[in-house]
Design a protein around this nucleic acid. Structure first.
Length: 577
RNA sequence: CGGGAUGUGGCUCAGUUUGGCUAGAGCGCAGCGUUCGGGACGCUGAGGCCGCGCGUUCAAAUCGCGCCAUCCCGACCA
């Protein structure tokens, strides 16, 4: 491949509307261009990278026994009505009508389509298990697309769906996909972690997310330093404390004029926030709920939603708080609270401080001291509902948990019967009895992997691509394409590499050396091979490892063998052999 | 959807507060010359409905109203 003939429009400056590093670099490196909000054109180099990721995913999916197919982007509304998601999925589903006024949508995911396909064709247990996947463009009309390819509206995704005759079989399919995902992300040369996850709107029994580790990631991961436990903070469990019954004097009121926040109250009373109870009011499917956590903790809305079995959970408005507690925001408490409000508490509150809790008095400018929740308040139930924090004990082994940031690039779900039941995907077992198929679904955001890889691997000069997903593994920089010996040597090296299976780009442009060096660093080809008159005069060509920046001289004669050695070292640096 | 901001050659931006003559700079692009191992320099040149519409005014990139687009924060979500 020759740079002169290639379309690689690199930019010195990033467009003003690019915010995150991967978006800036992808644009500057001439790999993508934005068409409109959340929708991008993949330029030749960007597409090359995308295809490399897709091919690794494809190889591992095939190896795991899944079969590739391709489903349509346009889907009929009927199927979505049948699964119940036409109403449930919301505005993220882009809907439209055809010329006959029939409803359609652009597929954000394909559970409905595969399930429809399979239920019509698969009739016998002999045809199961089955695992089908595709690599296809998805469209989700995100509320707020952002961060370039990280959260586009249109994006490339690999989605796989497994069908099994029973739950044990589904577990095996799940495990096979989990293993395949581990191999995929290892092969890509990325630092990643598989974590336990919440199942979200897709639903189902349990799931794991695959996180590419990067400080710029949107997700927080809690990982144990001692055992293998790792989970999304949304989901990470917190064990209950060993409850101790505190005996304290009777509750009494104290004036706290104008003290609304935990910090203000704690400061005013000169006590630790740990002695306070934070009472948060929520509107759960239209009903008022008070959720209690210790003053220094964060409520975990996902856990709360799950333990309430709520569909829709939003923080109460100031007006609702006033109506429910008869006090302005900042003075709510569980004692003497209106009976119409359900009161739930984080199980950490089972362990009270010696002097009891400090809680809001449901009256402006007042709090209560020496509160014993069991004695003085009405708690409907205790449950795990706060977010895990740095150095909390691990819920499995009691070790210490550390928090890191990650980008979700893959997600595996055990769906169970959710769609097969709703859409009647059944088969006959060996006794001629009708059984419902047990499903799983498994996604990888191919275009997001590209962005995540860059978020994880970049420096001030540009992208440092892991070799497996770089648009080209190597670039041969011909410093003086007009000098016959330089041009000839550069071309010879290029041809040799191409023949030996290295994906290589020859920079044969008539540009000054600086421009070529900058561009090579920017695009982030893992291996740079510099052919110049000076080096050739001394019988060497220079090679540079983009990741480390380390430069080495290899003999111009006998380059082939020396290169093979060097390449091994570069790949070893990425943890790839 | 709520809050904030921005919109001027392909890209980055100045000019808008206080309306005024032919709308500028750097990068990029084309031509010529000199250069040539980490984004060279000189000269010449092409390229603009100043987001769109309506209004105010002798006069609008600049003021007013409306719309559209994009970005950021939030709710939401993979």
């Amino acid at each position: 491949m020759r740079w002169k003939q290639a379309y690689i429009p690199t930019l010195k400056e990033a467009p003003a509307d690019a915010e995150v590093i991967s978006h800036k670099l992808l644009t500057r490196a001439g790999m993508i261009r934005k068409l409109t909000s959340g929708i991008y054109v993949y330029l030749p180099l960007g597409l090359k990278s995308l295809n490399k990721i897709a091919n690794i995913v494809r190889a591992e999916m095939n190896r795991a026994g899944a079969q590739e197919l391709l489903m349509p982007t346009v889907q009929p509304a009927d199927l979505w009505k049948e699964s119940g998601r036409w109403e449930f999925y919301g505005k993220e589903l882009l809907r439209f009508k055809d010329r006959n006024e029939r409803d359609y949508c652009l597929g954000p995911t394909h559970e409905e389509v595969v399930t429809d396909l399979i239920r019509g064709e698969v009739r016998s247990y002999r045809q199961l298990p089955l695992n089908l996947y595709q690599i296809q463009t998805k469209f989700r009309d995100e509320i707020r697309p952002r961060f370039g390819l990280m959260r586009g509206r249109e994006f490339l995704m690999k989605d796989a769906y497994s069908f099994d005759r029973d739950s044990e079989g589904a577990d095996k399919s799940y495990q096979a996909m989990y293993d395949a995902y581990m191999r995929i992300f290892r092969r890509l040369g990325l630092k990643f972690r598989a974590v336990e996850a919440d199942t979200g709107s897709i639903g189902g029994k349990f799931s794991h997310e695959f996180m590419v580790l990067a400080d710029t990631g949107e997700d927080l991961i809690a990982a144990c330093g001692q055992c293998a436990y790792a989970a999304n903070v949304e989901r990470a469990e917190v064990n209950p404390p060993s409850a101790k019954k505190a005996v304290c004097g009777p509750a009494r009121e104290i004036a706290t004029p104008g003290m609304h926040t935990i910090e203000e109250v704690a400061g005013f009373l000169n006590i630790s926030a740990k002695a306070l109870v934070k009472t948060l009011l929520f509107n759960a499917d239209g009903k008022p709920v008070a959720a209690l956590v210790r003053g220094d903790r964060q409520i975990n809305e996902i856990k709360l939603k799950n333990c309430l079995n709520a569909v829709d959970l939003v923080l109460a408005t100031p007006e609702e708080v006033q109506a429910w507690t008869h006090a302005p925001v900042g003075f709510a408490g569980p004692v003497g609270l209106w009976e119409g409000v359900r009161v739930v508490a984080d199980h950490e509150l089972l362990a009270a401080p010696a002097d009891g809790w400090v809680v809001g008095a449901n009256r402006a400018d007042a709090h209560l001291l020496n509160v014993d929740l069991e004695r003085d308040a009405r708690i409907d139930f205790y449950a795990d509902m706060r977010s895990i924090e740095e150095s909390d004990p691990c819920p499995r082994c009691g070790g210490t948990v550390a928090l890191t940031r990650g980008i979700e690039v893959g997600h595996v779900f055990k769906l169970g019967l959710k769609y097969s039941e709703a859409m009647h995907a059944v088969f006959l077992d060996e006794n001629g009895r009708e059984q419902t198929m047990v499903m799983g679904c498994y996604g990888i955001g191919i275009s997001r992997v590209l962005a995540a890889a860059i978020e994880q691997n970049n420096d001030k000069d540009g992208i440092c691509f892991p070799p497996p997903l770089a648009p080209c593994e190597a670039v041969v920089i011909s410093l003086d394409p007009n000098a016959e010996n330089v041009a000839a040597k550069a071309l010879a090296i290029h041809d040799f590499l191409e023949k030996s299976g290295v994906d290589v780009l020859l920079d044969d442009r008539e540009e000054r050396p600086g421009v070529k060096f900058k561009d090579a660093d920017l695009v982030g080809f893992p291996m740079q091979i510099v052919v110049g008159g000076k080096g050739l005069g001394r019988g060497v060509v220079e090679v540079k490892d983009r990741r480390t920046g380390e430069k080495t001289e290899l003999p111009a004669d006998g380059f082939e063998n020396a290169f093979a050695e060097w390449k091994k070292r570069v790949y070893a640096g990425w943890g790839i052999d």
